[in-house]
Design a protein around this nucleic acid. Structure first.
Lengths: 340, 340
DNA sequence: CTGAAAGCGCTTACAG
DNA sequence: CTGAAAGCGCTTACAG
C-alpha cells in the first residue's frame, strides 16, 4: 500500500511537534480538546511532514470508516446518476466518502456487493428500493450497520425510507391520461420481480383504471428490462395487436424513449397517432422530440435528504427518518389531449 | 462498525479449532502452506462461527485493500457511465472492489478525492485524462500507488494510459466534415483549461483546418462546461454571428444535443439549415432526432482494458501498459454532405 | 508444518 | 489540557 520509509506516521508527527501521539490524534479528531498553542504546533508538523492518517489503522482503532456504501441497480443509464451525485455531494460536505457498486438489477449480485461493502467497513448503506430477502436485513442488523432504502416511500415497512410513493405517482399520471380521454391504454413495464418500484408503478396504473370504470385485466402489459432497445421492441409488439392502444404508458423514461424510437421506426407520429408517457423525468425526457410527458421525481432532493438521514443513523442521532418526497405529473408534448 | 459480542475474530476461530491465529490466517490466505487435516478443522471452525476477516485489521497488517479507486469528472451525464461499468465488472471478476468519486471537473476537488481514496487504502487509482499538477503524481509515487490515466492515449507521457488519441480522432472527424464541403466551421468546445481531452480535440480541429488550407484563427470557438443547456446557448451565440457557419462541431455529444435543442428553439432544421457533430458516441447521440454524427469511442473495451492494466500494476506483474484504442468516425443524419 | 510474538498505525479510557 | 499505555484484529518473519 505504501512505502514505509516515505510515509510519515502519527509517531513522526508527535516527535516533530514534541507531544504524544494522543495529542496529535486529538488535534485531528477533536481539536477543541487541545489548547490552541499546542494545536498550532501540531498542525504545523502535520503540514510540514505531509501527514495523512493511515486508514486501516484508523478504522481498526476507531471502528469507523467514514465511508458510506451505495448499491444501485445500474450505472449505465442516467436514472440514478443525478440522485447519487447529490447524495455524494452531501456526504462529502459532511466528511464521508461514497463507495458505489452496481447490481445489474440482480438480487444475488446485490447481496455480494452488500457483503463486500460491509467487509470494507462501510459505516452505512444506501440501497434502492426495499424489497429484498429478509436475510439481507438480518445480516446487516447483526452487524449494526444502518441501511436506508431510497427511491421508495414505505412508512409501514419498519425500515427508514426516503423517497416517493411510486404507486400513487403512477396512478396520478394515469388519471391525467384518462382525463385526456384515453381509454385504450397499453403498458411497457420494467421487470416487476424483485423490483418494488416497477411493481408499484404497475399497480398504480391498475388502480387508476379500476377507479375510472376500466377493466385492468384487459390492459396489455409487456414487462422488459430497462433498456432503450427493449422499449422499442415492446412498443412494436403492443402496436401490432388488433386493438391498438391510443397511449403507451412506460415504466420509466428509458423505456419511453425506446417506445418513441419504435414509433419512429414504424412511421407513426407521436402524439398524433399514439401517445407515450414515461416516469422519472430524467434529462432524456426533455431531449427527445417530442418531449415526454412523465412523472417528475425530485432526484437531487432525494439524494441529499437520503445522505442526511443516513448519516444521522450512522452517528446515532436518530433511528432513521422516513421521508416522503412529492412527485408531480409533468405534461409535455408526447401525450395528446383527446378531449379537445 | 460492528457489535463486538456478535462478530467472531481470528482468535475465536483459532481457539475453536485448537490452533494458533497464525495457522488460521494461513488457511485463509495461503492454504497450500497448511496440511489438509489442520486446514479442514480450521475451515470447519470458520464456517461454524461465520467468521469474516476484519477489513481494517487486514489492511493494516497486509497493506492491501483489494480496492481500486476511480475519480471521474462527473456522474451526471452518461459520458463515463458505460466505461466505468465495464471497468467495475472486470475488477469484480478479479476480486477487487471499485470506489468511485467525482470531481465536478475541478482540479482542487479531484486532489481532495485522490487523497481521500488513498487514505482509504486504494491499491490503485484510475483517473480520467492526464493533465494535472505534478505534485499529484509525486504524492502518489511517494506512496507507491499505481495510477492509470484513461480516456487518453499519451505514449510519451511516461505514465501508463489506456485510451484513444483525442486529437487525431477529432481531426479525422473534421476531415470528413471538410470533405463534405463544409468551409465555415464553428466550434462549441468543453472548457480546455485543466482538461486535456477538450484541449486535444480543439487542437485536432485546428489541425484539420490548417491541413486543408483553411485558417484556424478565423474559426469561431465558444468554450463552455459540458451541459446540454450550455450547448444550446452557445449554439445560438454562434448562429447569431454575421457569417453563419454551415456546421457547428461540438466537443462532445452532450454539447451537440444542446446545440440541437438550440437549433430547434431557433426554428432551424438540422442538417438542412446547419449541420451539427458531437464526440463520444454515447447513447444520447442515437436517441435524438436527427441522430448525431460523432466520434465513436470504445467505452466498454476501454474500461475493461484499463481494469486489467491497473490490476497488473497493483500486483506488480507489470509497470503499466499503455494501450491505444481506436476511435472511428460515426456518420449519422446531423451532418449534411454539401457536395451532393 | 505450526506457534509465539512482534508489529502494523491508530484511538481512547484512565490518570494526573 | 496532556501523556503513558492498552488494545483494535490481523499478518508474517523467525524459530523449531
Amino acid at each position: 500500500m505504501s512505502d514505509l520509509r516515505t510515509v510519515p506516521t502519527l509517531d513522526d508527527v508527535a516527535r516533530a511537534a514534541g507531544v504524544s501521539t494522543a495529542t496529535v490524534s486529538r488535534c485531528l479528531n477533536s481539536p477543541e480538546r487541545v489548547v490552541e498553542q499546542t494545536r498550532k504546533r501540531v498542525m504545523a508538523a502535520v503540514e510540514a511532514l505531509g501527514y495523512t492518517p493511515n486508514f486501516g489503522a484508523r478504522v481498526m482503532a476507531a471502528k469507523r470508516t467514514f465511508t458510506i456504501g451505495a448499491i444501485i441497480p445500474t450505472m449505465e443509464n442516467a436514472i440514478f446518476a443525478r440522485g447519487l451525485q447529490a447524495f455524494q455531494e452531501e456526504l462529502h460536505t459532511r466528511g464521508y466518502t461514497l463507495l458505489v457498486a452496481s447490481s445489474a438489477y440482480q438480487p444475488k449480485i446485490e447481496e455480494e456487493q452488500i457483503r463486500s461493502l460491509v467487509a470494507r467497513g462501510a459505516d452505512g448503506l444506501l440501497l434502492i428500493g426495499h424489497d429484498r430477502d429478509p436475510s439481507v436485513y438480518q445480516y446487516l442488523k447483526a452487524r449494526s450497520i444502518p441501511v436506508l432504502s431510497a427511491w421508495v416511500y414505505l412508512p409501514e415497512s419498519g425500515q427508514p425510507t426516503v423517497g416517493f410513493d411510486n404507486r400513487q405517482s403512477m396512478r396520478a399520471l394515469a388519471q391525467q391520461v384518462i382525463d385526456f380521454g384515453h381509454q385504450k391504454i397499453a403498458v411497457i413495464s420494467g421487470i416487476t420481480k424483485g423490483n418494488d418500484r416497477a411493481a408499484a408503478r404497475l399497480a398504480g396504473l391498475r388502480d387508476a383504471l379500476a377507479a375510472n370504470g376500466l377493466d385492468p385485466k384487459t390492459m396489455p402489459v409487456v414487462e422488459t428490462p430497462y433498456e432503450i432497445e427493449n422499449g422499442a421492441v415492446a412498443f412494436q409488439t403492443l402496436m401490432c395487436a388488433e386493438n391498438r392502444p391510443t397511449v403507451v404508458m412506460c415504466g420509466n423514461d428509458v423505456l419511453a424513449v425506446g417506445a418513441l424510437r419504435g414509433a419512429r421506426d414504424m412511421g407513426l407520429s407521436v402524439p398524433e397517432d399514439v401517445s407515450i408517457t414515461g416516469f422519472d423525468d430524467i434529462e432524456l425526457a426533455r431531449i427527445v422530440t417530442p418531449q415526454i410527458t412523465t412523472v417528475h421525481v425530485p432526484h437531487r432532493e432525494m439524494g441529499r435528504k437520503a445522505a442526511i438521514a443516513l448519516i444521522d443513523m450512522v452517528e446515532k442521532r436518530g433511528t432513521g427518518d422516513t421521508i416522503e418526497l412529492k412527485s408531480t405529473v409533468q405534461l409535455r408534448d408526447s401525450l395528446r389531449d383527446l378531449t379537445r
